[in-house]
Every structure is written in structure tokens, then in C-alpha cells.
């Protein structure tokens, strides 16, 4: 990942200047700004931590729990995407215990909906599929829940397949924070949580959707996809996000 360039800020005199901490990640000495997360600093240093709900350019949620790490001296686990670095922190991103938990969490996610890669529009271009390989998940030991989910193909250009949704909520965040339309939200809760547009209308009948397609580009799986593309062409381009954010900050100054 590219390190995020420090943004020019007006000098502040009312608080202490921004601190830089030194810490250890997997035994390596690294440094991070006080407002940077373990995930950011790890990636700056080429240390891999798996993520699913995280996406550069979107607000963090700390929800998928795949980025859990250990911090020496604490029995608890921490989500790297929402834990800020601290001086002398000793982070372990890869241990037998963490690997085991991550794989099990991924198995849970696979068991939740109907993830049939073989017939999925993003087969081969899917973050979930890739994670299974990266985390060494060869099979799911939990029962598949096989919920009766539906497909919403009412939008002229895009379609929504709830069978493939992992509830990372990237679509909701990009629509609210970047596009500013807030077309998406989530209905219900727990295992019944589901992505909805407006008042749970078919996407094609949404009054607020601008059709910008950002949600489709950030979706890690085949839940949101473009119509009329073949499986091989179905690549997602979420890279626009950090760029958009940078340009907006630029415009503010």
C-alpha cells in the first residue's frame, strides 16, 4: 500500500504538536504518527494484515475482525484498523492463535450467505475468495446457513445479489461519505441484517441513487456488480477513493 502523504495543515498552537511514536510490529522497529492505526503503519512497512471491511479512503468500522492482532501485555485482541499506535507498543500480527481465529471468522463469513464461487460474477476477482487462499481456509467446518436471499436486478446498469453480501458496509459508507447520497443503509439486525436502498425499494426505483457506481467499485464480492460484463471483465476499481479524498482535502485548503 502507498503510505498516505501527510496533508498540509495550518499550524496549531493550542495543542501539543503531533507526536511520532516508535513501536514494534512483528519484532520490527517502526514509527507511526499518533493518529495512525496499526494497520496503516504495518502496511507502510509491508507487513500483511488481512482486511475485509477496511478500504483505503473510507471511514473505519472495525467490524469484520479479520485484522485482529495481539499486543504484548494484553490478553485481548485488537482490530488493527481502529487501534492507534502507541509509544513502545509491541504488536504481533501473525501467531498461531491469530491465524486460527482469522480462519474461523472467515469460515463463519463463508457459512453465512450463499457464496458459490463457481457461478459468481466476480469469480477470480473477489476479495473474499482471495482471503480464503491467503488465510489457508480450505473448507468450512460450520454448517452452511443457506439463507433464502434474493437478487435485485432492477437497476438498469447494476445488480445487487444478497447471496454474496458480507455486510462490510463499504457501499453504505461510500454512498454516504463520498457520494453524499445515502441511498444505502442496512435493515434489520443480527443475522437478518440486509442492505437496502431508500425505504427498502428496488434499487432501480430508488429516488436518491445517482447511478455513480461507486458502491459497485468498492464492493469486495459479487454482491454489487455491473451488468453486461463477463466474469473475466468484472474487476473492481476502488483505487479512486484515496484520490478523491486527497483532491477534496486539496480543494478545502
Amino acid at each position: 500500500m502507498t503510505p498516505t502523504a501527510p496533508i498540509a495543515q495550518k499550524p496549531r498552537t493550542d495543542v501539543n504538536p503531533v507526536r511520532i511514536y516508535t513501536l514494534r510490529i512483528d519484532g520490527r522497529d517502526v514509527s507511526g504518527r499518533e493518529d495512525e492505526t496499526i494497520l496503516t503503519v504495518a502496511r507502510q512497512n509491508g507487513i500483511f494484515i488481512p482486511t475485509l471491511c477496511h478500504l483505503d479512503g473510507l471511514a473505519e468500522r472495525g467490524a469484520c475482525r479479520l485484522c485482529i492482532v495481539e499486543i504484548q501485555g494484553s490478553p485481548k485482541l485488537f482490530a488493527a484498523c481502529v487501534t492507534l499506535v502507541k509509544q513502545d507498543m509491541d504488536v504481533i500480527t501473525d501467531s498461531a492463535r491469530i491465524r486460527d481465529y482469522r480462519r474461523k471468522i472467515l469460515e463463519l463469513i463463508f457459512s453465512e450467505r450463499n457464496h458459490v464461487c463457481a457461478v459468481c460474477v466476480v469469480n477470480g476477482n473477489c476479495e473474499l475468495q482471495d482471503l480464503a487462499v491467503k488465510l489457508g481456509m480450505t473448507h468450512v467446518r460450520y454448517d452452511y446457513l443457506n439463507p433464502p436471499q434474493s437478487v435485485d436486478a432492477s437497476h438498469p446498469r447494476f445488480s445487487l445479489d444478497h447471496n454474496r453480501c458480507v455486510l462490510c458496509l463499504r457501499c453504505i459508507r461510500v454512498c454516504k461519505d463520498i457520494e453524499g447520497a445515502s441511498t444505502w443503509d442496512i435493515s434489520g439486525r443480527g443475522i437478518h441484517a440486509r442492505i437496502i436502498s431508500d425505504l427498502n425499494q428496488p434499487w432501480g426505483e430508488s429516488e436518491t441513487c445517482t447511478g455513480c457506481g461507486k458502491c459497485v467499485q468498492v464492493c469486495p464480492t459479487g454482491a454489487l456488480s455491473e451488468k453486461g460484463k463477463s466474469v473475466a471483465e468484472m474487476t473492481k476499481r476502488p483505487q479512486f477513493l484515496p484520490y478523491l479524498q486527497m483532491m477534496r482535502k486539496e480543494a478545502e485548503i
Partner: peptide, 25 residues
Amino acid sequence: EPDLMRYVAGRLKVPLSRVYAVATF
């Protein structure tokens, strides 16, 4: 009722999707 949710959304300047989300959460 959906029309009332729509009404409330407009008055409080809350996205429709959020009204529905809160109503079902």
C-alpha cells in the same frame, strides 16, 4: 406507514434509507 416514514425523513432531513434502517433495527 411508508408514507409517514417518508414524511419524517423529509422533515428531519434524514436519508430515507436511515429511517428504514432505524425502523427495522
